[in-house]
Design a protein around this nucleic acid. Structure first.
Lengths: 148, 148
DNA sequence: GTTCAACCTCGACCATGCTGGAGGTCAAGC
DNA sequence: GCTTGACCTCCAGCATGGTCGAGGTTGAAC
């Protein structure tokens, strides 16, 4: 069992963040008779997962939902993690695709003399409302809500 | 010249956000004698840029810095936008690369029986501190600070 | 010249993801 | 058994990216 200080040192996650994550239900601990936290080593794996997922732009809530798939009552097995990782990879793939679409649109604009032409994707982004008349808002965030 | 309501409708950006962006120096307006905002049509282009950049994960500050490259005193020309777009594409490429690296690491883990082996990248992420002894924190955000 | 939607400012508030401090407790070493 | 660093629980505060409402003004139509 690891103390909060040991977990902080090994994971590089500040102890303040560890308590915060516990508060939000992302990690858990047991308490000593004196009310101090003690962690299973497996919390390091969860933390690696959490921090890496954050880099990809997932919110802590996304991560909490993902981690909820793991068993609470036993140390997650390799196949538990595999299942989780696979679904996470799908999310990553979706985000990479979204970035590609944005980049390609932009690249097209650079080459095409866009931004003054009706045919340009970026131009259409910023003025299709004017062309098509009033309606629902555009410019919706492309990276949201996508557990693909 | 467009009123704030017209800009909000055409861009899909709420008027509250428009004032917020102006406050932060991302867009500008002129005022009528009665102190109401009037916008050049080119603000729609700026807004498209802002919203799209946000999708990619850039902060408003990043965007403000980027937009600061555009001329204040005249309508941006095609080449002004091209210059901006090109530097933005670089940022996009960097982010795509970062996502790839993360995905590949994860994919490798799924295949290799990792998470219990010293050789696994993800394992090393979560426990290299223990192996290498005390030192600087790891798990540093991979997507930060990269106008590379 | 009155009406009324659209506009204005300012300040409070929201969510997320934390950090830091105050004030107190625990536990291991001497 | 005392010291001291690591731990505990609140709670306030920060940054980002906004939203909402109060209270007042503008301006275009009738």
């Amino acid at each position: 069992m690891l103390t909060i200080g040991q977990v902080a040192e090994r994971s590089g996650v500040p102890h303040t963040a560890l308590r915060f994550y516990e508060d939000r239900g992302l990690i858990s601990s047991v308490r000593t008779a004196g009310n101090q936290r003690r962690y299973l080593r497996s919390v390091l794996r969860r933390l690696a997962f959490i921090r890496t997922a954050q880099r990809v732009g997932l919110t802590l809530e996304d991560v909490r939902d993902a981690l909820a798939q793991l068993p609470d009552n036993r140390t997650p097995t390799k196949s538990d993690w595999e299942r989780l990782s696979r679904s996470w990879k799908t999310e990553l793939d979706a985000r990479i695709d979204a970035l590609y679409r944005l980049r390609d649109r932009l690249t097209g604009c650079i080459g095409c003399g866009c931004l003054s032409l009706r045919s340009c994707a970026l131009q259409n982004i910023d003025d299709e409302q004017a062309t098509h008349g009033p309606g629902a808002p555009k410019l919706k965030p492309a990276l949201e809500g996508g557990t693909a």
